[in-house]
């Protein structure tokens, strides 16, 4: 027990890094939130939030980080994810003695908060991190639960792909007082349109990415005349921070005050 606790604390005992590279848009944005961006020297091509992040040096895409570039930048630490970064590239970095801290992609709101706190501890901004997390929790607790409206969360069109009750997006729906009409073991199943029509959603969440939102709204209007549409920024859902998460929940909750 002690040993585990000690091991757990070792990475966090050294507070603060001077040269940080982030290989995930989500981590980049979080670092800005906890005001640790000064030490951030490298980001990926896909790190577009906040706008200042795009001015940082680029080290490739999350899927294919540029090993040579990263090594030449002599980072103290690289923040990456197991799911989003190429394992082969990460293994090469490890062999080159680059220190890497991995985060797991959050599966729930709780995961998201944990990751955020871990990150802030890691870079010596624990206080700021806690503050943001507490603010987020507080904002969510003010919302009414269980409003009983039914939500379809569309992830992709052509073919129709949605977020099921086993997805991260489901937490946003539930915390906003709604319920997901699609239940499946798969987090993002390809779904039969008939099921959507039978379940008759009140709200359809569309994400501004990869497909034409305007067109999808017109398509759905053929089947439902009273449905409300919410357009969420795909970036804030796909790579959420506590702040963007809360904003997404609020946007959804405001539909049914």
């Amino acid at each position: 027990m002690w040993l585990i606790l000690v091991l757990f604390l070792i990475p966090f005992s050294v507070h603060g890094y001077d040269r940080i590279i982030s290989l995930s848009p989500q981590i980049t944005e979080s670092l800005y939130l906890i005001e640790a961006a000064k030490e951030l020297v490298g980001v990926t091509e896909f790190c577009k939030k906040p706008a200042e992040a795009t001015k940082k040096q680029k080290v490739g895409t999350p899927l294919r980080p540029d090993v040579e570039k990263i090594v030449s930048m002599r980072p103290d630490i690289v923040f990456g994810t197991r799911e989003g970064n190429s394992p082969l590239v990460m293994a090469r970095l490890e062999r080159l003695n680059i220190k890497i801290h991995y985060f797991n992609r959050p599966k729930t709101f709780a995961d998201l908060m944990d990751n955020f706190l871990t990150l802030s501890k890691c870079v010596g901004k624990e206080e700021k991190g806690k503050q943001i997390v507490n603010n987020a929790r507080e904002a969510l607790s003010k919302l009414k639960n269980e409003k009983g409206y039914r939500v379809l969360w569309q992830v992709g069109a052509d073919p129709l792909v949605v977020a099921s009750n086993n997805s991260f997006a489901n937490d946003i729906i539930v915390l906003a007082g709604g319920s997901n009409i699609i239940e499946s073991e798969l987090p993002y199943p390809r779904i039969n349109t008939e099921e959507v029509i039978l379940k008759n959603p009140n709200v359809i969440v569309l994400m501004d990415m990869g497909y034409n939102v305007q067109l999808e709204m017109e398509r759905w209007k053929r089947y439902f005349n009273k449905v409300k549409f919410v357009i969420l920024d795909a970036y804030s859902v796909g790579s959420p921070t506590p702040v963007s998460f809360v904003n997404a929940v609020k946007t959804l909750a405001e539909l049914f005050p």
């Binding site: 992709g156 069109a157 073919p159 349109t193 990415m209 497909y211």
Partner: peptide
């Protein structure tokens, strides 16, 4: 990768959309 997925899925054959 997100956009790529949609394209790939469509290419795999899709009568629904």
């Amino acid at each position: 990768p997100d956009k790529m997925q949609t394209t790939l899925m469509w290419l795999m054959g899709d009568l629904s959309s």
